[in-house]
Structure formats: structure tokens, C-alpha cells
């Protein structure tokens, strides 16, 4: 078979930690190149937790062989968060010398000898759904356990092109240009909102009121304005057919570091406000705050009227006529009441 790239195929280890396998399955949806081309032309897919034929000690043996023989040459891809609770025992990836090999241990060891480390998916990049509050497994993203640069390719799941493109870039040209969150700028350079097909509806104030309305999703919680990804242009999956807004639903911001805690509820414009013991949506909070203000002012006003203070104020400042008042001000005859409110 003809090589996809003139460069030799680098060995790749794809390790699954606390994951749903959605990112690897999404990568399988890649159209050009497809999975067959990926494993025969582009990379030497030595280890894959999901699709590798090897199981048991054969599988852990492959991990050992690659790290020893190909030190500094292999690309390490991690899919999933890394639990730290009880020394990482909340995710075990294999056995070593009869003892469980935790994901935490494996990532640390494999990460040290890799040429590049790629975090595939939002879980591996930023924690994602499995590290969401209250984070029962005390999971952290890959970058938190490695002392070296991790290329983050977030998405829940990743669009096949994002991962395939990053791999091709690594093989052909080395590390791609990254943004402040170490995401490749070629895929995460613009907000969804800036390149959205429904931007015109937003500008003209035509908004969907419920899922299934074919207009701008802003008012039913679309996180497009604060989400960096090229979904509107690239679309999903292999054949680039659709994406959530085209399917008349809001973007839920799955490539963002704060997903899902920082941008939930998905159908609300702003994330929840966390008050002690209760989560409350931002709009509800605003309504409550507004009502409390109005209530406070009304009560005070009623008090002021009942105690006669309002009447006093008006009488004092208006009854004397402008000239007399002016004089009184200058002469400071009214100086007893120095501090006022205005």
C-alpha cells in the first residue's frame, strides 16, 4: 500500500482511562482518510485499548515493548480522565506483577517517554463530564499529572477531523500552533457564533423558543458565542452532514474547559449560580435579585411616607421658594442636616 505521508509511520499508543470510548469511536467515523488508511499509511497503531486484538498480559506487554524500544519516538494519545482517588485505583488499565496497574501510573510512565502527548476528548483535556461536580472519582485531566506539554484536542466527542488532522500535523509537520488552552488553532480558532449559519437570525433578533425551531438558538441556551470550535464549517460526522444547531438544538459548548459544570444547564443562556446548598439558574437569580431590590425600596419608601420624612423633605426644599432657599444655603442656616443622600 502507498504511504500516506513520506515520513515513516510513527508508533502510536492510544490508552483509554476513565472514558466512554466515544472519542475512539468518533475517530472511526473519519471519512478521508478512513481508519484503514490511518493504520496502514499514517501511523503504526501499536496499542489501542478498544480495537487491539491483544488482551491481558499480551496487551500490557505491547505497552512495555513500545515504551522501551521506541522511547522518544512514539505518540501517546490518552482518552479519558485520570482518577486520583485511592492512589488511582478508581481506574485500572492492566496488571503488572500480579498487581493492578492504575491509569495514573500508566499515564505518568508512558508520558515521560513520548514524543508528543495528545489528550483526545474533553475528559482527557479538561476533565469533562466524569470530573464534573462532585467529581466522585477525583479525576483530573492529563495535563494535571504530566510535567510536559499536552496537546489538547477537546470535544465530546472529538470530531473525527480534529483528531485525524492533529495526528497528520504531528506526523508531517510536528506540533501545530496552539491557543492558550493548548488546543490546535486550526480547529479551535473561532467561536461557533462567529461562523454560525444562523448568525443573521441572531443579528435580526429572530430566536428559537424551543428545540426544533429553525432559528437562532441563543435564547434556548446556545453556547456558540463562548465556544471555540469549527462545527458550523466542518460539521459532523464522516460525511460532514450536520451539527447541533443545524439539527435545531443549542450548542452545549462541549469543547470548552468548563464543560459541563461551567456551562450547564444546557438549555439556559447562562450557567447556574451556586448558592450554598442549591443551584439556581442565572435568569431566576436575576429575577429574584430584582424583586428583592424592588421590595426593599418599596418598604423603605412606605416607611418614609408613614414617618413623614418624605413630606418633610418636600416641604423643606420646596416650600420656601428658590430665592429664600438659595440664601439659606449660602448662609448655611440649614447646616444642621449636613449629610444628605444624593
Amino acid at each position: 500500500m502507498k504511504q500516506f505521508s513520506k515520513k515513516s509511520r510513527p508508533p502510536v499508543i492510544w490508552l483509554g482511562t476513565n472514558t466512554c470510548a466515544g472519542d475512539m469511536l468518533s475517530l472511526l467515523n473519519s471519512l478521508e482518510p478512513g481508519y484503514q488508511s490511518l493504520i496502514t499509511d499514517l501511523i503504526d497503531f501499536r496499542f489501542n485499548y478498544l480495537l487491539g486484538s491483544a488482551e491481558g498480559d499480551t496487551a500490557t506487554g505491547v505497552l512495555k515493548a513500545v515504551t522501551e524500544e521506541q522511547r522518544g519516538k512514539y505518540i501517546l494519545v490518552i482518552e479519558g480522565t485520570i482518577p486520583t482517588r485511592t492512589n488511582g485505583l478508581y481506574c485500572v488499565v492492566g496488571n503488572r506483577d500480579g498487581k493492578p496497574l492504575t491509569a495514573l501510573q500508566a499515564v505518568r510512565e508512558l508520558g515521560g517517554g513520548a514524543r508528543h502527548v495528545v489528550a483526545a476528548g474533553t475528559c482527557a483535556s479538561f476533565g469533562g463530564p466524569y470530573a464534573a461536580a462532585p467529581n466522585p472519582s477525583e479525576s483530573v485531566p492529563v495535563q494535571a499529572v504530566l510535567d510536559r506539554k499536552v496537546i489538547n484536542v477537546p470535544g465530546c466527542p472529538i470530531n473525527p477531523d480534529w483528531m485525524m488532522g492533529t495526528l497528520v500535523h504531528l506526523v508531517q509537520y510536528g506540533e501545530p500552533e496552539l491557543d492558550g488552552f493548548n488546543r490546535p488553532k486550526i480547529f479551535y480558532g473561532d467561536t461557533i457564533h462567529d461562523i454560525c449559519q444562523r448568525r443573521a437570525y441572531f443579528e435580526d433578533g429572530i430566536f428559537a423558543e424551543k428545540p426544533g425551531d429553525p432559528w437562532c438558538m441563543y435564547k434556548i441556551g446556545c453556547k456558540g458565542p463562548v465556544t471555540y470550535a469549527d462545527c458550523p464549517n466542518r460539521q459532523w460526522s464522516g460525511e460532514h452532514l450536520s451539527w447541533p444547531v443545524k439539527a435545531n438544538t443549542p450548542c452545549i459548548g462541549c469543547t470548552s474547559p468548563e464543560f459541563p459544570d461551567g456551562d450547564a444547564p444546557f438549555f439556559e443562556h447562562l450557567p447556574d449560580i451556586n448558592l450554598p446548598g442549591i443551584k439556581i439558574s442565572a435568569n431566576r437569580f436575576a429575577r429574584l435579585a430584582g424583586a428583592a431590590t424592588a421590595f426593599g425600596i418599596s418598604i423603605h419608601l412606605i416607611g418614609s411616607i408613614l414617618t413623614g420624612r418624605v413630606a418633610d423633605t418636600i416641604k423643606k426644599d420646596f416650600s420656601g421658594g428658590i430665592s429664600r432657599k438659595l440664601l439659606s444655603i449660602i448662609k448655611n442656616t440649614d447646616g444642621k442636616r449636613y449629610g444628605g443622600k444624593n
Binding site: F181, G262, D263, P271, I273
Partner: peptide, 24 residues
């Protein structure tokens, strides 16, 4: 300036929390 001021977003955990802060 979300791109050149990305550090601020990073500080509060992302653009969503930033937007929430602005609103509150």
C-alpha cells in the same frame, strides 16, 4: 477580546464563568 485576553478566561475557568461574572 477573547483571543488576546484568554488568560483572564483561564483564570476564572473559561468564557462561560466569565460571562456569568460579567452578568452578575
Amino acid at each position: 477580546f477573547p483571543k488576546s485576553w484568554q488568560k483572564t478566561a483561564k483564570l476564572v475557568g473559561g468564557l462561560n464563568p466569565l460571562r456569568k461574572l460579567h452578568f452578575l
